[in-house]
């Protein structure tokens, strides 16, 4: 409890003490924690492996950015369009896959395929810059404008902090409703779940629509934080992998796993980059190799992820009261 209070306080006052670099790392952690949480709804709760979540991030980013640049629609409005667009995309993939009983590895391949051809599509979409990139004009502002997502890094930090906390609370709530129980039943054994009267198609659809809708906000944030979008980057397979590494390393299906995983990975990856820079080395791809090493270590030592192991050490282990708490 005390630990939580200290942590909360630290998170709240961080921007006052941190320099720009630390703050950017913190934002990155929150960004991946948020997206990891969104992905976790599908895989961790409902057992549907998506390897193409960059699709929703990208679509969310492009929709909100295009509305802003072309029509001057502010992101606080654009975000709803982005969420709807991503939910529609998720629903389309879901109907195709779940209606025809595509599951497991084949479902994962389908999600990759959709992300890939969306990337290729955006490469040729002149309206949003094509492969040359799409840019949002950056204007110096005297004050922070949260609704327009224009302002200092500290403002972006707080926006992402609120989103991450909201996603956490939302997921925790979901897990303790009928929906959460049904998702976990489907994850554990779809046939037994169906025999207990669960319409597995409907609940899998619900998982993909909620997950894609949540991811859309990540995309909107990305667009207005970085102010530039390239299909090659935002839709790339490696982005999808980066999203899912956090929850896998932190603990799939847990609520704290995505947050912990994102923090560990981002801090260590940044640390390594810094270390390399300090020695004056520049080796491309070192981050990816490092991610691989982290994944190996987790699979070998804590196959269920860091959080379940850590929770056991701290004596926080859920005593089976709820579905896999925390």
């Amino acid at each position: 409890m005390l630990l939580m209070a200290v942590l909360t306080a630290a998170l709240l006052i961080l921007p006052a003490f941190a320099d720009t670099y630390i703050l950017s790392v913190a934002i990155l952690i929150l960004y991946f924690a948020y997206l990891g949480q969104a992905w976790n709804v599908m895989m961790g709760f409902c057992g549907q492996l998506s390897l193409g979540h960059s699709l929703y991030v990208g679509v969310g980013a492009y929709v909100s950015a295009a509305l802003f640049v072309h029509f001057g629609i502010q992101p606080w409005l654009g975000v709803w369009a982005a969420v709807l667009a991503c939910m529609a995309a998720g629903a389309a993939i879901g109907v195709l896959a779940f209606r025809f009983g595509i599951g497991g590895v084949y479902f994962a391949l389908l999600t990759i395929a959709f992300a890939e051809f969306t990337r290729i599509g955006f490469d040729h979409l002149r309206w949003v810059g094509g492969s040359g990139g799409f840019f949002l004009h950056v204007a110096q502002r005297e004050f922070n404008d949260v609704l327009a997502l224009r302002g200092s890094p500290a403002m972006f930090y707080y926006v992402m902090l609120v989103a991450t906390v909201a996603a956490f609370v939302f997921c925790a709530w979901l897990l303790h409703t009928r929906i959460g129980y049904y998702w976990q039943a489907i994850r554990e054994d779809p046939e037994a779940a169906q025999a207990l009267g669960i319409n597995t198609f409907r609940y899998k659809m619900l998982a993909i629509v909620i997950s894609s809708g949540m991811s859309a906000f990540g995309g909107v944030f990305f667009a207005f934080y970085y102010n530039n979008l390239f299909p090659e980057q935002i839709f790339s397979m490696s982005r999808s992998i980066e999203i899912i590494l956090g929850p896998i390393i932190g603990g799939i299906g847990t609520l704290f796993g995505p947050i912990l995983g994102a923090a560990v990975l981002t801090v260590l990856a940044e640390g390594i980059t810094e270390l390399m820079a300090a020695f004056g080395w520049e080796i491309p791809g070192v981050k990816q190799v490092f991610y691989g090493a982290c994944l190996l270590a987790v699979i070998v030592f804590v196959p269920r992820g860091i959080w379940p192991a850590l929770a056991r050490c701290l004596g926080l282990e859920s005593r089976g009261k709820g579905p896999r708490d925390g």
Partner: peptide
């Protein structure tokens, strides 16, 4: 089911809750 299909990762209580829902 003849070959039992428990929701292995859930507690016994949660298994039955899924049915009761």
């Amino acid at each position: 089911f003849q070959l039992v299909k428990p929701f292995a990762g859930l507690s016994v209580m949660d298994n039955v809750i899924v049915g009761a829902l």
